[in-house]
Amino acid sequence: MAILEVKNLTHTYSGNSPFVNDAVSDVSFAIEKGEIVGIIGHTGSGKSTLVQHLNGLLKPTEGEVLFENEDIWANPKEIRKIRSKVGLVFQYPEYQLFEETVIKDIAFGPKNMGLEGDELDKTVKEICEIVGVKHEFFEKSPFDLSGGEKRRVAIAGVMAMKPEVIVFDEPTAGLDPKGREDVMKIIRNYRKATGATVIIISHSMEDMANLADKILVMNKGKIYKFDTVANVFSNSEELRNIGLNVPIVTRVFEELSDLGINLPERALTIDSAVEILSALKAEVENA
């Protein structure tokens, strides 16, 4: 069963400007429970606008968003409830930190959901465990942490609501390689612990190939493609035409075959490339 379904969603930003443009136009897709879906698209393709509909921060101009087959806007007064079911981690989430201590900040979300006392304490500690917030940071001010640690705390702040679907808008932007690795690990750990459905917007094709089951490609406010990772990355020409690309290792494999080197298949990740090449090497040695 699809946990999240978007039907004919259109969003028009109504501003004072005479240039009214649909930020998202007539988009439909369904996400199955437990899937990891990557969203890629060039800047301004409507990715961020699209994901803000999933937890009801934006109301569709037309169309609807269904969570477990129910229209999230069925009762507009209850819209806050959906926000604990569909968590949204914004770009640079560390800018939303505000509490005196790390632990209080992480507790902000679950507290808004009505958790109190021991239950609240237990939930927060549990999340800190999953996300890897160190014990010695608990009583520190979040503003004294390093950039990577701040982001870790901010992500924990959303995860503490235990959402069934969690959406990340460029979670690794502005981090060093170690920080990026850490964020990816946090996402994997959370999914392992809770079985949540994950949606990630990213500009890193490598991260997408490593993590996602399916990829949704946005172009000019419309869905260009929604398919498995292998199928989306099978045509690099097409992706380049809309300002995107395939993972570097896939490009290396493509260039090699253009040079006339016969490779059995195209690698999407470094791991699969190593596998393919070792198999090839063994084959050559055996022959």
Partner: peptide, 26 residues
């Protein structure tokens, strides 16, 4: 920032005056 706090369940629209002022802190 408002959107980010709303995504964490902050309620900015409802409540008494004191509650609303408190809701501005985040």
């Amino acid at each position: 920032i408002m959107n980010a706090q709303k995504a964490r369940g902050a309620d900015l629209e409802n409540g008494s005056l004191v509650e609303r002022v408190k809701a501005l802190i985040p």
